[in-house]
Amino acid sequence: MSDLKQQITEQMKAAMRARDKVRLGAIRLILSDLNRIEVDERIELDDTRVLASLDKMAKQRRDSIAQYLAAERPELADKEQQELEVIKTFLPQPLSDSDIEQIIDDAINATGASSMQQMGQVMALVKPRVQGRADMGQVSTRVKARF
């Protein structure tokens, strides 16, 4: 079992002891999704894959919050926000703008990319370094702006 998944399991036990229903529910959703991936793909998740899954869950929650607020359903948006806060506790510290720019610079220099046709190569180097620490949509936009 990956270290991160083990940590999530320990936090679930702590939430049970503390009788924190909101946190417990969110952690159970996380573990349920991780277990689903393991069963569907017949693999044991490593920390990188767990982070990618957490990042995806966080993005889904942000999208849901925006949709619920647009539909004037603040009670549902609040529930999603609470789940998002729990998910964020398992994600690494977000990268600053200057850190993201530095990672992009390093990837462009490493690949020698000079046109949009080589963006895929740049993103292949950038993605593992920023996964779970930055919004990939914004990172992609920044890379596109370089060409």
Rank of each mutant, 00 (worst) to 15 (best):
M1W: 05
S2W: 10
L4C: 10
L4S: 05
E10V: 08
E10N: 11
K13E: 14
K13W: 03
A14L: 15
A14V: 06
A14M: 12
A14E: 13
M16N: 04
R17V: 03
R17I: 06
A18W: 02
D20C: 07
V22D: 13
V22H: 07
L24V: 00
G25N: 05
R28K: 14
R28T: 13
L29R: 14
L29D: 15
I30M: 15
D33K: 15
D33C: 04
L34C: 09
L34E: 04
V39H: 05
V39Q: 13
D40A: 14
D40C: 00
R42E: 11
R42Y: 01
E44G: 07
D46T: 07
R49T: 09
S53L: 11
L54E: 08
M57D: 05
A58S: 13
K59Q: 13
Q60R: 14
Q60E: 14
Q60F: 09
R61L: 14
R62W: 04
D63L: 11
S64V: 01
I65Y: 05
Y68H: 14
A70V: 00
E72L: 11
E72H: 12
E75K: 11
E75Y: 08
E75H: 09
L76K: 12
A77S: 10
A77V: 01
D78F: 06
E80K: 07
E83R: 12
P92E: 07
P92D: 08
P92M: 11
L95E: 02
L95T: 05
S96M: 06
S96I: 02
D97V: 09
I100S: 04
Q102L: 05
I103G: 01
I103Q: 08
I103E: 02
I104W: 00
D105A: 06
D106E: 15
I108F: 10
A110L: 06
A110F: 03
G112D: 08
A113T: 01
S114K: 05
S114A: 03
M116Y: 10
G120T: 09
V122L: 07
A124H: 10
A124M: 10
K127N: 04
V130W: 06
D135K: 09
D135C: 01
D135M: 02
M136H: 03
M136F: 13
G137H: 08
G137F: 12
V139E: 04
V139S: 03
T141S: 12
R142K: 15
R142W: 00
V143M: 00
V143I: 15
V143C: 01
K144A: 11
F147A: 00
